[in-house]
Computed example of a mutant assay.
Amino acid sequence: MSLFDQILGAAHNHPTVKNMADKLGIDQSVAEKAIAALTDGHQADGDTLEVASAKSGLDQNILSQVMAHVGGEGSLTGFMQLLDQDHDGNPLNDITDMASGLFGKK
């Protein structure tokens, strides 16, 4: 499972993401996909919006609106922190644990 898919799963039905989608007037699934793509893109080399758009297929305008709504590129780290359940500064291990738990491999 890719990092994008893991983040997408963790963002699914998250109340913060739903609230943002409602405020922006976009579907929650688009908001979830945008958050996953932006967070993944923020961790990758290159321009965050370009990477996120290529990864998700979403228009850069929508991605830009989502990123602006969450407070800009620097605040994407905040979404990673929302996913960091054990507060060790590394949300990737928590996402991996969530994903492995879904498949009974924990």
Rank of each mutant, 00 (worst) to 15 (best):
Met1Arg: 09
Met1Leu: 13
Met1Ser: 10
Ser2Ile: 06
Ser2Thr: 14
Phe4Arg: 04
Asp5Arg: 12
Asp5Glu: 15
Gln6Asn: 08
Gln6Cys: 03
Ile7Leu: 12
Leu8Thr: 00
Gly9Ile: 03
Ala10Cys: 10
Ala10Tyr: 04
Ala10Gln: 03
Ala11His: 01
Thr16Arg: 11
Thr16Leu: 13
Thr16Glu: 13
Thr16Phe: 10
Val17Glu: 02
Val17Met: 03
Lys18His: 09
Asn19Thr: 15
Asn19Gln: 13
Asn19Val: 13
Asn19Leu: 14
Met20Val: 12
Met20Lys: 05
Met20Glu: 05
Asp22Ala: 15
Lys23Arg: 13
Lys23Pro: 03
Lys23Thr: 13
Leu24Phe: 08
Leu24Gly: 02
Leu24Met: 10
Asp27His: 12
Asp27Val: 10
Gln28Ile: 15
Ser29Lys: 14
Ser29Met: 12
Ser29Arg: 15
Val30His: 08
Ala31Asp: 02
Ala31Phe: 03
Glu32Cys: 07
Lys33Glu: 09
Lys33Pro: 01
Lys33Ser: 09
Ala34Tyr: 02
Ile35Asn: 00
Ile35Val: 15
Ile35Tyr: 01
Ile35Ser: 00
Ile35Gln: 01
Ala36Asp: 02
Ala36Cys: 09
Thr39Ile: 08
Asp40Trp: 00
Gly41Gln: 00
Gly41Phe: 00
His42Pro: 01
Ala44Asp: 08
Asp45Tyr: 06
Gly46Glu: 02
Gly46Ala: 05
Asp47Gln: 06
Thr48Ala: 01
Leu49Cys: 05
Leu49Tyr: 00
Leu49Asn: 00
Glu50Pro: 01
Glu50Ile: 12
Ser53Gln: 04
Ala54Tyr: 05
Ala54Asn: 10
Ala54Asp: 11
Lys55Gly: 05
Lys55Ile: 11
Ser56Thr: 05
Gly57Asn: 07
Gly57Ser: 08
Gly57Arg: 05
Leu58Gln: 08
Asp59Gly: 14
Asp59Thr: 07
Asp59Ser: 15
Gln60Val: 09
Asn61Thr: 14
Asn61Asp: 13
Ile62Arg: 03
Val66Arg: 00
Met67Phe: 03
Met67Ala: 06
Met67His: 02
Ala68Ser: 14
Ala68Thr: 14
His69Asn: 09
His69Asp: 09
Val70Arg: 01
Gly71Arg: 04
Gly71Lys: 08
Gly71Ser: 08
Gly72Thr: 06
Ser75Asn: 14
Gly78Gln: 07
Gly78Lys: 02
Met80Tyr: 01
Met80Lys: 03
Leu82Asn: 05
Leu82Thr: 07
Leu82Gly: 06
Leu83Asn: 04
Gln85Lys: 13
Gln85Glu: 12
Asp86His: 04
Asp86Ile: 06
His87Ser: 13
Asp88Met: 03
Gly89Asn: 07
Gly89Cys: 06
Pro91Asn: 04
Asn93Lys: 12
Asp94Asn: 07
Asp94Trp: 02
Asp97Leu: 11
Met98Val: 10
Met98Asn: 10
Ala99Ile: 07
Ala99Leu: 11
Ala99Thr: 11
Ala99Lys: 07
Ala99His: 09
Ala99Met: 15
Ser100Trp: 13
Gly101Val: 06
Leu102Lys: 12
Leu102Gln: 11
Gly104Leu: 06
Lys106Arg: 12
